Simulated scan of single mutants.
Amino acid sequence: MLAAARKDLLLERLRIDGRIVAKEIAAELGLSEDSIRRDLRELDSLGLAVRVYGGALPASPAVADYASRVTVAPESKRRVAAAAAALIEPGATVILDGGTTTLAMVDALPRAFHGTVITHSPTIAAALIDHEADVFLIGGRLFKHSAVACGAAAIEAANRISADLLFLGVTGIHPTAGLTTGDADEAAMKRALASRAADTYVLGSEEKFGTASRYGVLSFDQVAGVITDTPANDPTARELTEAGVNVIHAG
């Protein structure tokens, strides 16, 4: 089998099965594990897969830059955002993580909401100007790829706040990889925010389900639920539900 055909097959298996075990696929194709690992390295370098111990997982398309992500699955994000906003009680203090789904939450949040919103995203803070809620903006080094503050100063500021809810954005939601994102500093900031909220809900628009990125954020047992509009019979949604994860289906 030619290398190009092997890679197409590996991508198809990732799409269908949600993971590849190098040893198993090598035995199936009658090839060496080294050949499969080499193919997986090349797919990883192209951003089409994420190599993990023993194989690979589907790469998330949500690691693109902020401007590009605005155009990805907008209807899915609106449905997830509406379901998330419905969880916010009047007077609550909430943390909105950065990202395009949390930005959609601003549109879903009533302008007359009387509560407090904390965010490390200047984009989200600016979108809240016409809302009645009090808005606190966490500062720090601007990670331009995601338009959020990260780094030591931002984490230090985050450690001084507390909130009822955090709505967390990630780029990958995978049964074995957990909740992941594409940057180590951003992952650390997300963990810091989660440590300051009584409950954390993950925003899971359709393009993130069944995919993974390079850096782990949290495990599923550290969050109160995953909000998604992915159908209940979706393989990833079903596997998460069977594992005891609270999957909240939007719309």
Rank of each mutant, 00 (worst) to 15 (best):
L46P: 01
V72K: 01
G244Y: 03
G182M: 11
E242R: 12
A84V: 09
N233W: 15
R37G: 00
T230G: 14
G251K: 09
E24A: 06
A85G: 06
I20S: 03
R196A: 07
R69D: 06
K190D: 11
A147K: 13
A133P: 01
A59H: 04
A83K: 12
D8I: 13
L96M: 05
R141Y: 14
D34E: 10
V170D: 01
A125G: 14
F143H: 15
A64D: 03
D185I: 10
L2C: 11
A85Y: 06
I124W: 03
V117R: 01
A147V: 15
G204Y: 07
L203T: 13
K77S: 00
S146Q: 15
V106Y: 06
D8T: 14
E132G: 14
I173W: 00
V170F: 08
V202G: 09
E186Y: 07
A194Q: 04
H174K: 04
G99M: 08
V245L: 04
A224W: 02
T101Q: 03
S162N: 10
A62D: 10
I227E: 02
T200E: 07
E207P: 06
I129E: 14
D164G: 11
P110Q: 12
L57D: 01
G140L: 13
A26Q: 03
M1P: 11
A212L: 02
E75K: 11
L109W: 06
Y201N: 04
I36C: 05
A224L: 06
I36D: 00
L168K: 02
A83N: 05
V135H: 05
L43H: 03
Y53C: 04
A3M: 15
S76W: 08
L165D: 01
T102K: 02
A104R: 07
